[in-house]
C-alpha cells in the first residue's frame, strides 16, 4: 500500500492540476485569518471550511489524473480497484495533514489571539473532520463515478454547498458553526465518526460504480 500511495502522490504532483485547489486554499486562509483579532477557534473555523472545499477539488483532481485504462492497469498491479481508491484516500490524507499543520500555525502567527492547547486541539480535530468529509465528496465527484466534467462540477458545488450551509446535517456545517460558538469536544467526536463513516461509504460507492463501468 505504501508503494501505491507513493505512486498516487507522484502522479498527482507530476500532473500539476493539484495547484488550483491549493492556491484557492492558501488565498482563502490568508484572506480570512490575516490580522484576525477574534477568538482563535473563529480563525480555525475559516481554515476548516476552506480545507473542506480544497480537499473535494484536490481529491477529484487526483483521481482524474489517471485515464480509465491506466487506472485499470494500476488496479491489476495492485490487486483490485478498491485498493486504488483507498490509496487515493491515503494520499489525500497526506495533503490534508500538511495543510492542517499550516492551517493550525498560520492563524496564530498572522493574527492576534490568546492561544490555548485546547483551542489548537479543537482546531486540529475540526480541520481533520472537514478534510475527511472533503475527500469523501471529492471521490463521489471524480471521473470514475461521474464521467462528465460538467456534471461533476455541478455535483461538487451542490454537495459542498449543501454540507456547508445545512446547519443540522453533520459533520461540516455544525462543526464550522460550532467552532465560532464554542463546541463541546464530545460533539466533535460524534462528527468525526460521521465523517469517517461518510468516507468509507464514498470509497465503497466509488469502487462499486467504477467497477460496473469497467
Amino acid at each position: 500500500m505504501t508503494a501505491l500511495v507513493r505512486y498516487t502522490l507522484s502522479m498527482t504532483v507530476h500532473g500539476q492540476a493539484y495547484l488550483p485547489p491549493l492556491i484557492l486554499w492558501a488565498s482563502a486562509v490568508v484572506v480570512l485569518t490575516m490580522n484576525d483579532l477574534g477568538p482563535l477557534t473563529g480563525s480555525y473555523a475559516a481554515c476548516a471550511m476552506t480545507l473542506f472545499v480544497c480537499l473535494t477539488w484536490l481529491t477529484a483532481v487526483q483521481v482524474n489524473t489517471e485515464s480509465q485504462t491506466q487506472r485499470a492497469m494500476t488496479a491489476v498491479a495492485a490487486g483490485g480497484l478498491p485498493r486504488v481508491f483507498v490509496a487515493h484516500v491515503l494520499a489525500a490524507l497526506v495533503f490534508s495533514a500538511a495543510l492542517t499543520a499550516v492551517g493550525l500555525v498560520f492563524p496564530i502567527v498572522a493574527g492576534t489571539h490568546t492561544v490555548t492547547a485546547a483551542d489548537v486541539a479543537i482546531g486540529a480535530t475540526a480541520q481533520g473532520i472537514c478534510a475527511v468529509t472533503g475527500i469523501a465528496a471529492g471521490l463521489l465527484c471524480s471521473r470514475p463515478v461521474v464521467p462528465r466534467t460538467g456534471y461533476a462540477v455541478v455535483l461538487a458545488l451542490l454537495l459542498d454547498g449543501f454540507l456547508l450551509i445545512a446547519n443540522a446535517v453533520p459533520p461540516v456545517g455544525p462543526v464550522v458553526r460550532g467552532l465560532n460558538a464554542g463546541i463541546p469536544p464530545g460533539r466533535l467526536a460524534g462528527h468525526a465518526a460521521v465523517a469517517v463513516a461518510l468516507l468509507v461509504l464514498a470509497v465503497a460507492t466509488a469502487s462499486a460504480v467504477a467497477s460496473r463501468r469497467d
Binding site: 501505491l4 507522484s10 502522479m11 507530476h14 500532473g15 485504462t69 491506466q70 498491479a77
Partner: peptide, 21 residues
C-alpha cells in the same frame, strides 16, 4: 491502447509499478 498524459518518465512509472508489485 495506453493513454497517459503524465509528466512522469517511463522509467519512474515502471519503477512505481515494480514497487506496487
Amino acid at each position: 491502447r495506453f493513454p497517459a498524459q503524465q509528466r512522469v518518465s517511463a522509467r519512474d512509472y515502471l519503477t512505481h509499478h515494480g514497487r506496487i508489485r
